[in-house]
Design a protein around this nucleic acid. Structure first.
Lengths: 318, 318
DNA sequence: ATTATTTATGTAACTGGTTACGTAAATATA
DNA sequence: TATATTTACGTAACCAGTTACATAAATAAT
């Protein structure tokens, strides 16, 4: 059986390459058929030069989408074959300005029928297909410009991983985990502070009993992430989102986002108006996550934490 | 403006390559994202091995469509990285039998989610397009298997060139040309015979006046091909197709075919039943042409020509 | 049984591109 | 005006494949 049929669409890249190779290989024979003294690899450079008076190396490279050393080499070869002329730019001594030689211009005339025939051959073949390859490429280039394949795959990944994640409410058996996961990242970047000990050593008393909540993220039944929604004694903020921690081995599985969502949903359910949080700008992924959750930066709130250098809020009801 | 838009469809090959390159480049990042110790270039080899117990180098090469040295190199690298095990075949000392190592099999398990995500990402992107790239490739590979791009281009070429060719009837001003073009090929492969001189020196008397015809092919108004339809004194054959000659500089422009067609049409118009011809098997393109015109080999006719070692006929009416 | 051919594989050299790096000219900045 | 930065381009080294060639084992032919 054909390899690509077996592998499936994940081999799209290789399959495209195989097709493009078989086509470019034939291109070589076609050039030979028309007896044009032109190597297929020269074609892009040759073509842009035939459409213009003269062009510098980098300009050509940009237009045809090659690197400049590639064009540099091609031009040297073409120059040796008498197809192009190199000359230094008078007003800019760095630029090597290339133009077609007399012979090159003759080739440009001689190649015209080839252009016509190849174009027609491809058009006719395209007309016989139900899915237009040319337009399909158009569409793909557009899609990939909008959102890279990498990001598309990442999204698939997140979506799939999310199936394995369940967010549950705190029970005392997670007390040690709650402390451990938080201590891990706090001591990595900062040091444990008084308020940390208070919340992490006695979550029941200092968070739950005061009207707050703690969420545990289970990844395939293993608890790997935690976060707290702490009741605030503030006329404006109902809750503070805090003590968010995800095990390093579960990073990139979107667990932070799911924990955040769970906390926000709980706050909404309880009719909360605003959520507050504090963080530090060196924790870039965290700040990023808060942004994605909808938090906006605010300034000028007193904080018991030394490490806090940024405050954010999420407005639930106007 | 985008190079490919300007160049048009004749750059289909390069355009495919550009797309495949951008996709395979992203593939590398995707592998990194999933933290699988696998280089993208190893993938095809890895994949076929993961689908089977063990395979020899050439078998793998055939399946994935690479050359065997390529597979040989890839396997060496993968072996150094502990992904595969090489072992000599007991019953055939030449074969190097490859199988996944323990680590390789672990990777095969670890890579599963990547397969799923990439497949889904591509499927979803495909679903957003009007022209299905995957199916379009299918169709193109089918089309190219049926008839290569080269042949398609050749056909376009012939079709276009045919516009420039006109077939006209002999007038005395072509007498020299008629002889010259024929003498050229006859003396190149054989020697001039008595019957040649008769027909070529006095075509009016020996061909036309006897009820035969001579056709001249003009390529862009320049006479570059000739052929004769000679009346035969035979109860079965009405005419003999003979003295077909095309200038070497006009070869490959389908002129022979157009001359032959003109002669056959004339014979048909005149209600002829059968056309006869003689040739030599070393003139392969000629024999080929006669076949394409519909002539079939026949045996056992007397001939005045020494060089004739094959006789053919075209039956016009049963 | 010997010899010729075919097959499986590895090595070397080539191909058409790339990235990395260095240099000189042009331009921006202090 | 001196210095730093940017730009244009060439050279070198690399990359993932290829073709060309050599060798040894297996198979076919004599």
């Amino acid at each position: 059986m054909d390899f690509f049929e077996q592998v499936g669409k994940k081999a799209l890249g290789s399959r495209l390459r195989r097709l493009s190779e078989s086509i470019t290989e034939e291109a070589g024979e076609i050039y030979r058929l028309y007896d044009i003294g032109l190597q297929p690899k020269w074609f892009p450079v040759f073509y842009v030069l035939s459409q213009s008076q003269e062009k510098a190396i980098t300009t050509i490279a940009e237009e045809i989408g090659h690197s400049h050393p590639s064009v540099s080499k091609l031009v040297t070869e073409m120059s040796r074959n008498g197809l192009v002329i190199e000359k230094k730019d008078r007003s800019d001594g760095r630029r090597n300005v290339i133009s077609l030689s007399k012979k090159g211009r003759e080739v440009a005339v001689k190649i015209e029928p080839l252009y016509i025939d190849v174009n027609n051959a491809i058009e006719q073949a395209l007309a016989q297909t139900r899915n237009d390859l040319w337009k399909a490429i158009d569409e793909w280039e557009f899609l990939l410009k909008q959102k890279s394949l990498l990001r598309r795959v990442e999204e698939q990944n997140k979506q799939r991983e999310a199936q394995y994640v369940t967010i549950i409410d705190y029970t005392p058996k997670y007390r040690k985990l709650f402390k451990q996961l938080n201590e891990e990242w706090i001591t990595k970047y900062f040091k444990m502070e008084e308020a940390d000990h208070k919340a992490l050593d006695h979550p029941q008393k200092n968070i739950i009993d005061k009207g707050g909540y703690i969420f545990i993220a289970l990844y395939k039944d293993e608890p790997l992430g935690v976060c707290a929604l702490m009741k605030m004694n503030d006329p404006y903020y109902d809750f503070e989102l805090a003590k968010m921690a995800v095990s390093p081995k579960a990073q990139g599985k979107n667990i932070g986002w799911l924990l955040g969502q769970a906390a926000i949903n709980r706050a909404k359910t309880l009719g909360a108006k605003n959520i507050y949080l504090e963080s530090n700008t060196i924790l870039k992924p965290a700040i990023n996550l808060y942004h994605k959750l909808g938090f906006k930066k605010v300034a000028g709130h007193p904080t018991p934490y030394e490490r806090s250098n940024i405050q954010m809020e999420l407005i639930l009801q106007l």
